[in-house]
Nucleic acid binder design. Structure first.
Lengths: 338, 338
DNA sequence: GCTTGGCACTCCCGCCCGGCGAGTGCCAGC
DNA sequence: GCTGGCACTCGCCGGGCGGGAGTGCCAAGC
């Protein structure tokens, strides 16, 4: 009985604090929410919640604010993801359907997510994992410099420059292209990679074939492609009321370190499961006062990338989770069709 | 005689203010620079400079700070671009030489420029202008969906998706590729564009050839490619001592509007000419308290893109101009070789 | 045993105020 | 035309002072 009311008090504190950004006191709480008890009772509950480490006071005789642990309980047990309105769904569909290619989908998603949540959005470019090799192209830019272009069934194009130890003429290039094509075309990335690694050395070409094959393997490895992320809505960092130099600057710096962002997005969760990392739960000092809401996307149940938002721990979790889930679903649907 | 000393006073004020970020008074000025006159004399000169609108006081009985007009005079007549040290040159060379492709050059440049200047760096991706068509590739992703890939001599690859009104089989695709290749391969972008526009309708293909040709023309038009810019060092906005919400937030927002940034970089200047736009000289309200230092880059004397930095009007102009010029030169040299 | 009203207490915040110091403008003298 | 002197003007800083919001505790009531 009291336990239930205490949780109701915690929920009310989280909701009020998120809405006003100010510590919330017992009187304001009973006024704004119909709790049906007096402020004194709520004060007792608050003392108990503080005892459990769910809320805290910035200083004596101020209102209470939730701790990370309090937010965690709120997210896990006190709230459900708030469905998007039909208007919001339509907006998502309209914006994302206008995309001309995969990169454009990613760029539109990141803008959209930033606008929907008023926070910083991060979208990972799709990894190529299970796609197949559509085409290999070699272009001689100079006698001893080749442009290697790899086209995958996912629609992604990877390009690399290779400097050769010996010059090649157009015929050599065509022959090499033929040999490589025969080995990799139509195969999945995984198959093509092993096939390339088993490839015998070409006849007296000074290691050219090996160099090109290595470049292809490198281009196919998830690594570089999955390293890429798009970031948007950095201006929303202004919502951190704190000092710029102390809290926002390190965040801005971290946002340019895409490797950090990838770790932040974490492991892909598919099927509408949204991951929430609150405050200090992550490994990065800079993000100790932020929360990350993320999920995976991809055709079917396969995850080919992650997306999410990062914002202050005092964020609207139900709304943010809904937006992240909705955008991920829509992007997944686009990948299904492609 | 007095005129000369007055200009020396202006130069000293700019240099001191840039170094300390604080209004500079007459006494500090004679102490730090060996002006050989008394503070009172300097005060008279300052009154004259203020009369001319070159400096101003934030409030009565404070030191002076330069106005935009004062910075303009300083940049145009009182300073020369400070050459980079050999160590800095080597650092630039080392970092940029490690790039694997054109996009990587741009991304490395933007990071480098941000680090060198401690300001926000902007680098435009090279436009394709005079490059020639190396290769056209068509890939059937689905019966009625084509991926069109355009490879240019500059090393740039453009890709587009085309939805067809009628399905095509592999033979149709190969035939279409052959026809298009014959028309555009080896031509410059300009030539290829006109050739495509004159192309006759394919035999009973339901407008497929026209659709693909149009896509190619679109991909070749400078527009989309030159729209792309890379931004780095946004964290350096912290150097604006001002309030976050009022001055930094609109800037951050503007930095995500790449169209705005392109206008900011302005018209390309080649041959080591660096453009400086100070404060309100530009059309954008958000950038009224910033200066933009930019220049063009490209092989030979041809400008294929711009790069620059944006920072507070109180910036180290000689050093910034030197860094911008040095990076542009090095990028140009890389394009020369490619 | 839980809830409630009352009450004293604590502490932040905004305000005013006075002293200090930096810097100026002006003036008379050189 | 330069210089030293001098009075004046402000912005900045620290201290002191209510006002107010919020708390914890206690004794009484259901």
């Amino acid at each position: 009985m009291q336990d239930e009311r205490r949780l109701a008090v915690l929920r009310a504190i989280v909701e009020d604090y998120v809405a006003t950004q100010e510590p919330v006191g017992s009187k304001a709480l009973v006024e704004r929410h119909g709790l049906g008890v007096s402020p004194a009772t709520v004060r007792n509950d608050m003392a108990a919640l503080e005892e459990e480490g769910l809320i805290t006071q910035p200083h004596t005789s101020a209102g209470r604010i939730p701790t990370d642990k309090g937010y965690r309980l709120f997210v896990d047990r006190l709230t459900t993801i708030k469905p998007m309105t039909p208007a919001e769904r339509r907006a998502i569909a309209t914006i994302l359907d206008g995309a001309v290619d995969l990169d454009d989908v990613v760029q539109r998603s990141v803008r959209l997510l930033a606008q929907l949540t008023h926070q910083v959005a991060i979208v990972q470019y799709p990894t190529l994992s299970r796609s197949t090799v559509r085409h290999v192209e070699l272009v001689a830019l100079a006698p001893a410099r080749l442009l290697v272009v790899l086209i995958l069934s996912s629609g992604r194009v990877e390009q690399r420059l290779v400097d050769l130890s010996v010059p090649m003429d157009d015929e050599d290039v065509a022959a090499l292209r033929g040999r490589l094509s025969a080995v990799v075309a139509g195969r999945t990335v995984a198959e093509a990679t092993s096939a390339l690694e088993l490839l015998e050395e070409g006849p007296g070409d000074g290691g050219v074939q090996a160099a090109v094959a290595e470049t292809l393997v490198d281009a196919m490895s998830d690594h570089r492609s999955s390293e890429r992320v798009a970031v948007g809505g950095a201006a929303n960092l202004a919502r951190f009321g704190d000092s710029f130099e102390l809290s926002v600057r390190p965040l801005l710096e971290a946002l340019e370190e895409h490797v950090v962002l990838l770790k932040l997005l974490g492991e892909a969760q598919t099927g509408g499961l949204v991951t929430v990392r609150i405050g200090h739960e992550g490994p990065y000092q800079e993000f100790a006062s932020t929360s990350v809401v993320s999920t995976g996307y991809g055709p079917g149940d396969e995850a080919v990338g992650n997306l999410g938002v990062v914002g202050p721990t005092r964020m609207d979790y139900p709304g943010t989770m809904a937006a992240v889930r909705a955008v991920a679903r829509y992007v997944s649907r686009i990948l299904d069709e492609a």
